[in-house]
Amino acid sequence: MRRFRKILSTAVLTALLVGGTAGGASASSVSAPGGPLPGTAAWLADDSLGRELPDPGTASPADVAAFFGGLTGAQRQRLVEEHPAVVGNLDGAPVELRYEANAPAGDQVLAYDPRGRGLIAQVVGDLENAAHVSVIVPGSDIDVSTFDRTAQRAADLQEEAGDDTAVIAWAGYTTPSGIGLDQATGRLAEAGAERLGRFTDGLDAAGLPDPTLFCHSYGSVVCGLAAADTDAGDIVVMGSPGMRADNVTALDTDARVWAAKSPDDWIGRVPHVDFLGLGHGADPTSPDFGATVLPADDVPEHDAYFTPGTSTLTAFAAIAEGDLR
């Protein structure tokens, strides 16, 4: 009984500490946007091509890519103009069409869903001609209204890595919000991992290089759960509360796994437990986990791993370019 109380109190502490990322307001559980995107019914009813259009809910990114590959330029253009909300979020569709469909939401936007708190993915660099592609997966309290933080990290990484690298700021899942149990459980990470796997499948179907995933804080939980279902060449986690795996082998991935944690990061106070669904397991920077640990002594806080001039950003850029093995 004493051991049970100790484990339970540790799990509760995990929830409180991870919840501390949010800063102020408390929040109850949040939900991801459900159901088909607006415009899906009209898309599925469109018979102008003399054949069915791929169902956004069931068609694989490879099937989507094959469908668009069989269209003329005029046919593609008409679909963008008639069904922008669908084309703009259809993994496997050509990059330039998704940009055009999402143009009202911003420059080089690869996905945009305005429902709820909003989901968005935006590219820095020349994605269609990039030799290397990176995807930044953010943690708690990131949505359309706070996306500028993730977009700035993408810009800083792309500038450090160089012109042959494109970086995608991917706020493509519903992140935990406020102080609550969502940060200490895997519910939102599980949904996010499914979306991340499909997104990277879409990059592959579009003929783009295997990505490097940069996963911050709760985003590392998402990447841990998605690891087996992506073709990422490298997975880099920073400020991680855990990846819901005991070690690299348990991630079931061929990707190289890297981890960074600053001694000044509050995440170091989070107990690495996994009990009754609370906590995210082992510390990825621990020797037993098996990741390659990156230096992070000059990172001043939890949100500063992409700060220009830090050893972490320098290492991230080298990994993104394939120069660090």
Rank of each mutant, 00 (worst) to 15 (best):
L203E: 11
E321I: 12
D246N: 05
E321W: 09
S262R: 13
I142R: 11
D210Q: 14
D163H: 12
A317Q: 03
F147G: 03
N129Y: 03
Y99R: 12
A250D: 02
D297E: 08
D113C: 06
Q152E: 13
E96S: 15
L37H: 08
G139Y: 06
A227P: 03
T307H: 08
R153F: 10
A260M: 08
G242T: 05
G242H: 04
G202F: 02
T212E: 08
S9P: 14
V257C: 01
R5Y: 14
T21Y: 04
A315R: 02
A317H: 06
Q77L: 03
A184M: 04
P138E: 15
L324Y: 03
L8W: 09
T253S: 14
A191D: 15
I142C: 05
C215N: 11
S29Q: 09
A260L: 09
L225Q: 10
L37E: 11
Y218C: 05
A41C: 06
G34R: 08
A74H: 06
T21S: 03
E81D: 14
R149E: 00
T310Y: 05
P263Q: 14
S26Q: 14
H280R: 13
F147V: 12
A103W: 08
R117L: 05
L13G: 06
W170F: 14
I7E: 15
L71H: 08
G224Y: 11
I136L: 15
L17A: 11
D47Q: 15
M243I: 09
P271D: 10
N89P: 08
R269V: 14
G23R: 10
A315S: 09
G50D: 12
A189H: 01
T10I: 13
A291W: 09
K6C: 12
Q122P: 06
E96H: 15
R187W: 08
T253A: 09
G219I: 14
P38Y: 01
D91V: 05
S145I: 05
G207K: 10
A131E: 14
L127Q: 10
E194R: 08
P36A: 13
N89L: 07
L16T: 02
D297G: 03
L71W: 05
N129M: 02
